[in-house]
Computed example of a mutant assay.
Amino acid sequence: MQTPTLVDLGMRPFFQQQLTLEELEHCSLGRVIEHHKTEVVVLAGNDALRLSLNPNIDGICVGDWVVFNGDRLLRVLERQSLFQRKAVGSARARQFIAANIDTVFIVSSLNDDFSLNRIERYLALAKETNVEPVIVLTKADLCADADDHRQQVQSLDSLLSVYCVNALAPDELDLLKSYCRRGRTVAFMGSSGVGKSTLVNGLLGSEQMDTGEIREQDSKGRHTTTYRAIKWLPEGGLLMDTPGMRELQLSDAKEGIKLTFADIESLASHCRFQDCQHQNEPGCAVLDALEKGEISARRLDNFHKLLREDAHNSATLAQKRAKDRAFSKMVNTVQEQARSGKKFK
């Protein structure tokens, strides 16, 4: 491939308009393609530069556009999209997953790990960030009723793009290549062992990601991807593979949940009470639709579950932000008093 331009890397007016004249004249611009514990790899043209993380830059992640000077990171440009989640095992922290993604392939296998609830969870995350979701159901060659599973997923949203594939059959991946054109960035999300790495290798045209075997006792996969990285696709786009996320929890994703469950939200507008919780209230249009079989109990239960989870996680994150603001205010007060010669009591 020739030296990639900024456009090849996904540059567009949204990012260009954020640069100052001084930055254009004296600094460089690049995109984060790998994120490690103490450093990031930034691609600028043909050069892949390893830059140490700047403690003054908060929350940098793969897919970010960054301004740098020599080996010094200066700042991160405002993101067009950002996938994030409540950090695993944390009550308050938030983890950034990927930035500036155009299309996210939500991957689910057609074995015993298939779960509509999990797909709805990923859809809520995608819709919250205004990124195009595409559902990819893998291991179709091992499933006797693959089309039935596809119809179940399609019933979640009639406009949703849903594909059943055997990731080991190159011709079956052609349908996905239209999303991988020049200047576009695609990401993969899904639980461990659903075939993401095999799918990535198929689109890349080579074995660049390790793959693992499936445990026979529970159809679960062994986690094979251990860090987030962007790679070039033959069609000219960029592909990001992410580690499997077994504990993906939502936070600040209420609008994404509502968009994912648009049918329930539409019914809710006809409930007798505006604050109807769709539990046992009289005149509830959602419960009426449930009784008539227009929506499933599984879908309504998952709607309630995701809303509760989002409300809880959003509240704990809001508490952390408030605590951080209070601490910063106290530090500023101490510093101001020290500068003015006043004794802090």
Score class of each variant (00 low, 15 high):
residue 64 D to H: 08
residue 56 N to V: 11
residue 70 G to V: 12
residue 73 L to K: 10
residue 49 L to R: 13
residue 61 C to M: 05
residue 59 G to I: 10
residue 57 I to C: 01
residue 88 V to S: 07
residue 48 A to Q: 11
residue 79 R to F: 08
residue 37 K to L: 14
residue 72 R to F: 14
residue 86 K to G: 03
residue 55 P to L: 01
residue 73 L to S: 04
residue 67 V to Q: 02
residue 75 R to F: 07
residue 83 F to L: 14
residue 46 N to I: 13
residue 82 L to M: 12
residue 52 S to D: 12
residue 95 Q to S: 09
residue 60 I to C: 02
residue 39 E to L: 11
residue 52 S to G: 15
residue 18 Q to S: 04
residue 81 S to V: 00
residue 28 S to C: 05
residue 30 G to I: 07
residue 61 C to W: 00
residue 26 H to A: 15
residue 70 G to F: 15
residue 59 G to C: 03
residue 80 Q to F: 02
residue 40 V to P: 04
residue 63 G to E: 01
residue 30 G to F: 01
residue 21 L to G: 01
residue 39 E to S: 15
residue 40 V to Q: 00
residue 42 V to Q: 05
residue 19 L to V: 06
residue 54 N to L: 05
residue 38 T to D: 15
residue 93 A to Y: 05
residue 84 Q to T: 12
residue 36 H to V: 10
residue 64 D to M: 11
residue 66 V to H: 00
residue 78 E to T: 14
residue 58 D to G: 00
residue 43 L to V: 13
residue 37 K to E: 14
residue 68 F to C: 04
residue 52 S to Y: 12
residue 62 V to K: 00
residue 73 L to F: 12
residue 38 T to E: 14
residue 73 L to T: 09
residue 31 R to C: 07
residue 41 V to G: 08
residue 86 K to M: 11
residue 94 R to H: 04
residue 33 I to Q: 05
residue 85 R to V: 09
residue 43 L to F: 00
residue 17 Q to H: 09
residue 74 L to H: 11
residue 97 I to K: 02
residue 73 L to A: 08
residue 88 V to H: 10
residue 41 V to W: 13
residue 48 A to L: 07
residue 22 E to F: 00
residue 55 P to D: 00
residue 22 E to L: 09
residue 46 N to Q: 13
residue 37 K to H: 14
residue 54 N to H: 07
residue 41 V to M: 14
residue 24 L to M: 10
residue 39 E to C: 14
residue 29 L to F: 11
residue 20 T to Q: 11
residue 23 E to A: 08
residue 37 K to N: 12
residue 61 C to Y: 00
residue 45 G to P: 03
residue 56 N to A: 13
residue 69 N to K: 14
residue 51 L to A: 03
residue 84 Q to E: 13
residue 33 I to L: 09
residue 19 L to W: 03
residue 84 Q to I: 03
residue 23 E to C: 06
residue 86 K to S: 08
residue 21 L to T: 11
residue 59 G to R: 13
residue 16 Q to Y: 04
residue 33 I to K: 08
